[in-house]
Computed example of a mutant assay.
Amino acid sequence: MAKVKYHYDSETLSYKKIERKRRTVFTKFFGSVVAFGLAMILGYVVLSRFFETPGEKVLKREYEFLKLNYASLEKKQAEFEHVLEDLQVRDNNIYRTFFELNPIPEEQRTAGFGGVNRYKSLQGFEDSKLVTDITENMDILSKQLYIQSKSLDEIVKLAKNKEELLAAIPAIQPVKNEDLTRMASGYGWRTDPFLKTRKKHYGMDFTAPRGTPVFATGPGKVTRADQSASGFGKHIRIDHGFGYTSLYAHLSKYNVRKGQKVKRGDLIGFVGNTGRSQAPHLHYEIRKNKERINPINFYYGNLSPKEFEAMQKAAQIEGQSLD
Rank of each mutant, 00 (worst) to 15 (best):
E309A: 15
E85M: 06
Y146R: 06
I155W: 00
K160V: 08
N117K: 09
K76H: 12
L13C: 12
V156C: 09
N255W: 06
I41D: 05
N255H: 14
K200P: 06
T181Q: 06
I104R: 04
R287G: 08
Q108F: 09
I104W: 07
N102D: 14
A229N: 08
R22Q: 04
I134P: 02
K196W: 04
D179K: 08
K160M: 06
G220S: 03
E81V: 09
S246G: 01
L47W: 09
I147K: 03
K263D: 10
D91I: 00
P105D: 13
F232L: 15
K16R: 13
R287C: 07
A39T: 13
V46Y: 12
Y254G: 01
R20D: 11
P213A: 06
T217Y: 03
E56R: 09
G220D: 03
K160Q: 14
R198Y: 08
L68I: 03
P174T: 01
H235R: 12
Y146E: 10
Y119Q: 01
G115F: 11
K290R: 15
Q173F: 05
H201C: 02
I296L: 14
N117A: 10
G269M: 04
G55S: 12
I268K: 00
K57T: 10
Y300M: 10
L152C: 05
F113H: 08
R49W: 10
D192S: 13
K221I: 11
H250Y: 04
R257S: 14
L152K: 05
N273Y: 00
F125M: 10
F26I: 15
R276M: 10
Y63D: 12
S14I: 00
E64Q: 13
N93F: 11
V262E: 00
I104P: 02
F99P: 04
A279F: 07
D86G: 14
H235L: 04
M311F: 14
L251D: 00
E81C: 01
G272H: 02
L165K: 11
V116S: 10
L84C: 05
Y15W: 15
T191K: 13
H235E: 07
L42H: 04
H250T: 00
K28R: 13
F215A: 00
H82R: 14
K129V: 07
I147Q: 01
R292M: 02
L130Y: 05
D139N: 10
Y202P: 00
K261W: 01
R118H: 09
E126R: 08
N297H: 12
Q144K: 15
E62S: 11
L59Q: 04
F113S: 13
Q173V: 04
